[in-house]
Design a protein around this nucleic acid. Structure first.
Length: 417
RNA sequence: GUGGGUGUAGCUCAGUUGGCAGAGCACCGGGUUGUGGCCCCGGUUGUCGAGGGUUCAAGCCCCUUCACUCACCCCA
């Protein structure tokens, strides 16, 4: 038996309806906020990701699916969507007609990590990006949009955390302060944190090892180092979140893993998924468009993990699978031919119709109809057909009435209207 | 990449000191020659994850390996 690749998964009927529901809610809500769908490829030149995400990050260092194609060019299965959208924005000069572009996309991402609950090697994200707006109003609005989506999906068991990461003007001062503390405390840090100290000092702040937490109690807060522009931006984001009634927690240890983030960073966390607490995360990345060769245009965006979201939403949406309106039960060959014709025409007229094609007993056809959850069964028996009728049974009430079979499609349409 | 747990029917799982491969559910048929759910009767379903070893004999013991899973790391 050939099995699917480790860390990959099938989304089977029964589960996929929830995914469709999530996607429908998402597109309808996002489009009400002015976002437009953009379809981007799932592979890009490796360089795009290493330059945007950061050479030193775990994603680029050890998690990307990178291959040489037949010509020898290095290409990578996208580990996230932002880089591609930025590339597309620049390449097609979308800023030329209007620098303000609100874009979203839904699709698979790939990271070669060890799989566990809520973490797959092919996973799905809903990704939204806004270009050309530096105002903190946008930061607040997209967080509001995100929380609104979760509310519509009845996902309430989650918390929004926010922080500011400063900008190239003020972050270096903080980094210096932090580095000094880290080297002073170097002896008491865990192995991971010694490594982080050099590579990604901010990460040490949210280490779970007690000794590290202890060592970090008097660590400087990034918020104390923010320049006045970043400070007022951040205050404004919080003020406008409050205006919209979005509750949030300020988390000065919140750090995003990707190099390109500036200022606002946020994450939606849940306690329902074991160790994988983040179901959405994002932030502002004002320097990335320029860094990738475009004009100096600010941007902000976020990604939602659909796999994780679906797992939580499934708790509130047990069964969304579509049930047939009518099951046509045939008795004998003549009857089966009629059932075949009716079932086909009903379906093409937009009425979900099913039948049995194996010529089974009425009893087993009734069973099958029941299993499919059919609302009605149309029984095409000889005695009724001779009178130009068939029996329409309501499966819930067991009421059974004769209906004329002439113009059956119209007959059903008017009955089910 | 590191560590723990688990692999037996489609699913959930029993399987004794090593001695014929099991149950419940599901599925199919019948009880009802034309009526679902409840009930009763019967039936189908196995590379016991894979490979090797010990033994008269291995689902069970030993070695190797793979997969799944949870956690670390990191992230959605």
């Amino acid at each position: 038996m050939i099995q699917l690749i480790r860390g990959f998964k099938d989304i089977l009927p029964g589960e996929v309806e929830l995914w469709q529901f999530i996607e429908k809610q998402t597109t309808s809500l996002f489009e009400d906020f002015g976002f437009k769908d953009i379809r981007i490829p799932i592979m890009e030149r490796t360089e795009l990701f290493s330059r945007s995400i950061g050479e030193e990050t775990d994603i680029v260092e050890k998690e990307m699916y990178t291959f040489a194609d037949r010509k020898g060019d290095l290409i990578t299965l996208r580990p996230e969507a932002t880089a591609s959208i930025v590339r597309s924005y620049i390449q097609h000069r979308l800023y030329a007609t209007d620098p303000v572009q609100k874009l979203y996309t839904i699709g698979p991402m790939f990271r070669r990590e060890r799989p566990q609950k809520g973490r797959y090697r092919q996973f799905y994200q809903i990704d939204a990006e806004v270009f050309g707006v530096s105002s903190p109003l946008m930061d607040a609005q997209i967080m509001f949009m995100l929380m609104t989506l979760f509310t519509r999906l009845s996902v309430t068991d989650c918390t929004a955390k926010i922080n500011s990461l400063g900008c190239p003007d003020c972050r270096p001062a903080f980094a210096t302060g932090l580095s000094q503390l880290l080297s002073a405390k170097a002896d008491s840090l865990c192995e991971d944190c010694s490594r982080r100290s050099a590579k990604n000092p901010l990460r040490v702040l949210d280490c779970k090892v007690p000794a590290c937490k202890e060592a970090m109690t008097d660590a400087p807060s990034i918020l104390d180092y923010l320049c006045s522009d970043c400070r007022s931006h951040f205050d404004s984001v919080m003020r406008h979140l409050t205006i919209l009634g979005v509750s949030f927690e300020l988390d000065k240890c919140l750090v995003r893993g990707l190099d390109y983030y500036t200022r606002t960073a946020f994450e939606i966390q849940t306690s329902l998924l074991g160790a994988q607490s983040a179901i959405a995360g994002g932030g502002r990345y004002d320097g990335l468009v320029k860094a990738l060769g475009g004009p100096d245009i600010p941007a902000i965006g976020f990604a939602i993990g659909i796999d994780r979201l679906a797992e939580i939403a499934a708790l509130n949406h047990p069964n969304l699978s579509r049930k047939p309106k009518v099951f046509i039960a045939a008795l004998g060959e003549t009857s089966q031919t009629l059932a075949f014709e009716w079932a086909s025409k009903l379906a093409s007229a937009g009425i979900h119709a099913e039948m049995d094609m194996a010529g089974r007993s009425l009893k087993s056809q009734m069973k099958q109809a029941d299993r499919l959850g059919a609302a009605h069964v149309l029984i095409a028996g000889d005695a009724e057909l001779e009178k130009g009728q068939a029996l329409l049974r309501n499966m819930a009430t067991k009421d059974q009435v004769p209906v004329p079979v002439k113009d059956l499609v119209e007959e059903m349409q008017s009955r089910f209207a």
